[in-house]
Amino acid sequence: MGKYSVSLKTLYVIFLVIMFGAFTIGALLIVDDTGVSRLGAIYLERSQKFPNISNVVFGVYGMYRFYDTLFELLIFSTAVLGITVFSDLEPSPGSASRRPVESHVVSASASFLYPIIAVFGIYLAFSAHLGPGGGFAGGVISGTGILLLALAKGAEETARNFREDSMKQLEYVVLFLALLVAILGALYPTEVYRDALGTGVITLVNISIAMKVFIGTWAILHFFVKHRGEV
């Protein structure tokens, strides 16, 4: 205890880690036939029949394996819930007196740049099935716009402008939306799902993922801007 000189235990751990690396790399180099393990080939084939999903990666996480994404969203909202609970439990002592950046350039360019960033994020989210981007990146990019606003105008004012309380409720609505999409997919066979609901379901998926990530990102940001400089 106390001293952190290299003990036998530490050497043992280092040895284990190196052994892990050596074994994995050895196995990789011996097998060296990755063509066989192309599980995604089936999705590539299948999505050729779907005319309205050209991004196969979206097809995988938004359609064929939406349950993976659903539970990922659940984990993410659990992490965000932890942050929100702590944020409520320990209000930052100096937050009220902390002033935003005192620079006209920053505050003027923030109000000018924010709409552009937000629109770009929304575009990425809504065109997830067509090209690269997707709801995750779109939500986070919109959140980055909020970061800019929070830095320029102060966390408190931004929180007021974005109606923190209704945002918290919206988070659960969005989660419910994602659940609804998942249940719809389970109820209807693939053909009906594709033809009758088609692009509408895709939009629902896009919106739910992007909104979930956006609200989560925003909650995290709000906490860190409010409590900045405590490490």
């Binding site: 690269p132 981007g133 997707g134 990146a137 986070v140 860190f224 900045r228 400089g229 490490v231």
Partner: peptide, 27 residues
């Protein structure tokens, strides 16, 4: 490209921002 865009938005911009915000003042 999907992973690239997401990693670019989260790993490059956001995580760095959060660390810098946490460090911005040495306490």
């Amino acid at each position: 490209p999907d992973v690239a865009v997401t990693e670019g938005a989260i790993g490059v911009a956001f995580v760095t921002f959060i660390y810098v915000l946490a460090l911005s003042d040495q306490g």
